[in-house]
Nucleic acid binder design. Structure first.
Lengths: 150, 150
DNA sequence: TTGTCTGCAAAAGCTTTGCATGAAT
DNA sequence: ATTCATGCAAAGCTTTTGCAGACAA
């Protein structure tokens, strides 16, 4: 795994340092896809290796610039990072357990262009997060009152 | 104007204090609709009256709780507040000048429910911001390269 | 009077940055 | 050897909170 990530790093013009390789390996290995800087720092540093918060933030931002990662905000104001592989998508987040589902809907793409035109905007992107309750949380605590907007 | 806001405040169970009346009056008077706490503090305090940041934040949050205001994040990570009047809507923001347009689209409402079902979520709300360029900025600096996601 | 609110200032939470040491090429 | 990256710690920025004095009812 080390060789792969080292080459990938050099490919995008970054030196193959330990923190960078650890962070990239972490994203490539995990089943989960969405992590905050704190998540990454905790997971990457636990193996007796100390990697500072400053480096984590710097590396994550460099990876976003290099299109290795994408960043955004989902739950709170914390920045969430995910691998920039696979197709464009939006997110649905469970307000009870935090579970995140990704989805892609062509209807949104089409409508956002039309809506932009109706208000005189050339739309080039969007930030869309659906808030709700996943199957499991609906079963255990079905409380579909109106918590959020919409 | 003072009488109105004082009564409105008491109606929602809040004492009619100077900071609260000033803040509410500010939102009611302005043509613009979207303000950060810093915006409000700057605008409300300039008239020789000193209102602290602490109070601004407390009052804004109380107004959100009382359904007088709505809050969310549009541009940055700063919280943006708007009057909770008129219908539900989403926002389009110009990435060049910051201009904000509000819109409502029933297609989104319908689709978000269907999408939720397809991933097993009961969707109760959403956070949607379209990013683009307004008419004016398209005219002066038409640079529709791919800055943002989508 | 009584309970609430304010201004001040300090703290909290997340992220960024300066700097000297240390590592990659 | 040179250039760049790291760890540490301090600062930045937005928002929250504790507290004593002040105000609304």
């Amino acid at each position: 795994m080390s060789i792969d990530v080292a080459e990938e790093l050099r490919r995008v013009g970054l030196r193959a340092t330990v923190p960078r390789m650890k962070v990239l390996s972490f994203f490539l290995d995990e089943q989960q896809r969405h992590f905050t800087a704190e998540d990454v720092c905790r997971q990457v540093a636990d193996e007796k290796l100390n990697i500072s918060f400053g480096s984590i933030y710097r590396v994550l931002q460099q990876f976003v610039d290099a299109k290795i990662l994408r960043s955004g905000t989902l739950h709170s104001t914390k920045i969430v990072y995910e691998l920039n592989n696979g197709p464009e998508h939006d997110h649905a987040i469970c307000m009870s357990c935090g579970k995140i589902e990704e989805f892609y809907d062509p209807v949104f793409d089409a409508r956002q262009k039309e809506i932009g035109e109706s208000v005189g905007f050339l739309v080039v992107g969007r930030q869309l997060v659906l808030q709700g309750y996943c199957v499991k949380c609906r079963a255990t605590a079905p409380k579909p009152t109106d918590n959020a907007k919409g």
